[in-house]
Design a protein around this nucleic acid. Structure first.
Lengths: 335, 335
DNA sequence: TTGAAAGCGCTAACAA
DNA sequence: TTGTTAGCGCTTTCAA
C-alpha cells in the first residue's frame, strides 16, 4: 500500500479511500491510484482491514453432518443454492464448514468465535449438539428449529411447518380410506423428524406403536424401517415417510415384497425433492416445502440482522425473528 | 486480552504465550492465565493474529462448478473426505468455496488473494478458466492436471493416469473380441476428459469419428451421447464411458433400446465410484482410481509446501512436485 | 479534498 | 521466565 501511495504520489489514506470506492477523492487522483494499484498488483490485506473494520464480508454455513451425508442429500444443495444467491447479491463470500464428529465442532466453534466471518448459518443440528454453545457472539440463523429452544432463548431460525405438513399428509391418507397407516420417522434427534412424528400422531391419535418405525432420512434407513413395518404389520395399507429419500427406499422394499403402490400400500413423502419425486415409480405424492427459498430467507435474515447491528448495535437484537414457511400437499400417483 | 492480563496479574505477552501453548511459562502462571481466560470467555482475535503471524490455519477448497453439479457428483464428496481427514490431522480448517459463473471467480480470487487462508486446493478447472490467473501468491495444489500446463509453469497437481487407464479399458474391450467400440467423452474442456479420449485413441488408432460422442460426466449427458452413438452406429458392440455416472446413463439407454449388457454391448466406466458400480445392473466393469487418496495427497502436498515455506521461503518452490496415481481395471459383469 | 497520526488486537524480538 | 516495546497493514478521525 505504501508502494502504491508512493507511485501515485498520494498518501496511504487516499489509496485506502480509492480502494474502498473512491468517495470524496477527485477524479484525476482516483485514476492515478487505480493505475498504481493495477501496475503493482496490489491486493489489500483482509486481516488488517478486518482488524479495524470488524467486518469480513463472509458468512459461514455450518452443516453438522459428515460429508457423505451432506453430498448424498440434495436437500443441502438446494438450500445452499438459495443462500449462495442471496449472499452473492450482497457481495459476501460463502464459506462452507463441514463437521464430522465432536472434535470438528470445537474447531468450527473456534473458527467462528475467532472472527473470520460476519455471521453463521447453521444446519442440521442434532438435539444434544454442542455447537450452539460454542457459537459465541457470532450472529447466527438456524436452518430448522433448534432442539434446545425453550421459547425464551430467542434463536432465529427458518423452518417449514413440519407438524402441519405431516398432519395434512396423514389426513390425506385417511381420506383415501386407509386405516392401517404406518410412519417412518426421520432421525429423531432432529426436530424436523420429531415435529413430523407429532403431526402423524395428531391425526392417528392412538396409533399402534408398532406402526411407527425409526428411519434416518436416508433411502437405506427407509428400507430398513419399511421391512420392520411390514414384518410387524402385514396388513399395512399406507405409509407416511419423513422425507422423499426415505419414501424412495420404502417403495423399493414394497416392490421387492410384491406390494403394489398405491393399490396395496399408499405412500406419501415429504420435501418434494425434484426431480426425485416426479421420476419415482410411481411418481411420489408428497408434502412440498420450498427449500431454496428457505435458504434465501436464512441468508436475508442474517444479512438484515448484520446491517442492523452495524447501525444500531447488539447482536441480532431487534432483528426480524424466526420464520416458519407453509407447506402444501402435492398429489401424484403414489397416494 | 488486556483484561485477561490484568485479571491474571501478568503482561499481555504472557497471556499470548499461554494461549499459544504456554511454552516457557511457569506452571502456576499458566494456570492463573488459563483461569482468567476461562472466566472472561476470552477468544483471541484471528484477524490480529494473522496480521502478524501471516498464518491462518485454514485452507480453501475451490470447486469451479455450480452447487448442483458438486452435490450431484459423489466424486467431490470422496475427494473432500480425504482432504478433510488430512487437514483435521494438521489442525487446519477446511473452507469450501463454490463458484458459479465468472462473477464468482473474481470474488473467490479476491478472497484467496486477500489472505484468508494459507493455501488453496483447486478442482475441476476448465480449460479457459480464469481462476489460476486470479490466484496470486497463494500456494495452490490442483486436483487434476490444469489445462494450461505447458510443462514449464510447474503447477503442483495430483491426478490419476487418465490416459493409461483409458487405454487399459479399451484394450480390455478389444480383448473381449469387440470391434465396434464407441467412446462417450467427459466434458472436453477438462483435461481428464481429453486424456481419457487420447487413451481411447491410442488403442483405436483410426476409429471412425462417429464412434465418439461428447458427454459431460453426468448421467444425463451419458444418455444423450448413447442415443447419438446408437443412431449413428447401430452395430456398436462396446462402449467406454468417461466415468461411471456417464456409464450408468448409457446403460439406461441401452436397456431402453433393448440392447443387453454385456451380451450385445459391453460397457466400461471410469472411477469405480462405489456403491454405484457394484449396485449397477449389471455391476459395472470400470477403471479404478483412489479418489479419497487423491484428496489426502493434495492436502498433504499443500501442507508440506507450507511448512517448507515457513522454514525456507518462496512459495511452494522446492516442494514435492505433482503426483500421478496409477489406475487399475476392475472387472465386473458389464464387460 | 487531502494528509498526518492514532490505533484495531495481537505476536515477537529484545531486555531485564 | 517475564515484561517492554515495536510493529503487522489497514481505516478513520481530525486538521489542514
Amino acid at each position: 500500500m505504501e508502494a502504491v501511495a508512493a507511485r501515485a504520489g498520494v498518501s496511504r489514506a487516499t489509496v485506502s479511500r480509492v480502494v474502498n470506492g473512491g468517495d470524496g477523492v477527485r477524479e484525476p487522483l482516483v485514476e492515478r491510484v487505480r493505475q498504481a494499484v493495477e501496475e503493482l498488483g496490489y491486493v489489500p490485506n483482509q486481516a488488517a482491514r478486518s482488524l479495524v473494520t470488524r467486518r469480513h464480508d463472509a458468512v459461514a454455513v455450518v452443516i453438522a453432518e459428515p460429508e457423505t451425508k451432506v453430498f448424498a442429500d440434495p436437500f443441502f444443495a438446494l438450500q445452499l443454492r438459495g443462500i449462495s444467491k442471496e449472499l452473492t447479491a450482497h457481495d459476501s463470500q460463502l464459506v462452507l464448514l463441514l463437521t464430522e464428529g465432536r472434535a470438528d465442532h470445537a474447531r468450527v466453534g473456534r473458527y467462528l468465535a475467532g472472527g473470520h466471518v460476519d455471521g453463521a448459518l447453521v444446519f442440521s443440528l442434532h438435539l444434544d449438539d454442542p455447537l450452539p454453545g460454542l457459537i459465541h457472539g457470532v450472529p447466527t440463523v438456524y436452518g430448522g428449529r433448534p432442539g434446545w429452544i425453550d421459547g425464551s432463548r430467542g434463536a432465529v431460525y427458518v423452518d417449514c411447518d413440519n407438524r402441519g405438513g405431516a398432519r395434512e399428509a396423514v389426513r390425506h391418507l385417511v381420506g383415501l380410506g386407509r386405516r392401517n397407516i404406518g410412519h417412518i420417522t426421520g432421525a429423531l434427534d432432529q426436530t424436523s423428524a420429531v415435529d413430523r412424528l407429532d403431526g402423524f400422531r395428531d391425526v392417528m391419535v392412538d396409533a399402534d406403536p408398532r406402526l411407527i418405525a425409526e428411519g434416518d432420512f436416508t433411502p437405506g434407513g427407509g428400507e430398513r424401517a419399511m421391512r420392520e413395518l411390514l414384518d410387524r404389520c402385514p396388513d399395512l395399507d399406507a405409509v407416511f415417510a419423513a422425507n422423499d429419500l426415505t419414501a424412495v427406499g420404502a417403495m423399493r422394499v414394497l416392490r421387492e415384497r410384491g406390494r403394489r403402490v398405491p393399490e396395496d400400500v399408499a405412500v406419501v413423502g415429504f420435501d418434494d425433492m425434484l426431480p426425485f419425486t416426479e421420476q419415482a415409480d410411481p411418481p411420489l405424492t408428497t408434502v412440498r416445502q420450498d427449500i431454496e427459498e428457505m435458504g434465501r430467507l436464512m441468508a436475508r435474515l442474517l444479512l438484515r440482522g448484520l446491517d442492523r447491528t452495524a447501525s444500531a448495535s447488539g447482536g441480532l437484537a431487534g432483528a426480524p425473528s424466526s420464520v416458519v414457511l407453509p407447506t402444501t400437499l402435492v398429489r401424484r400417483a403414489s397416494a
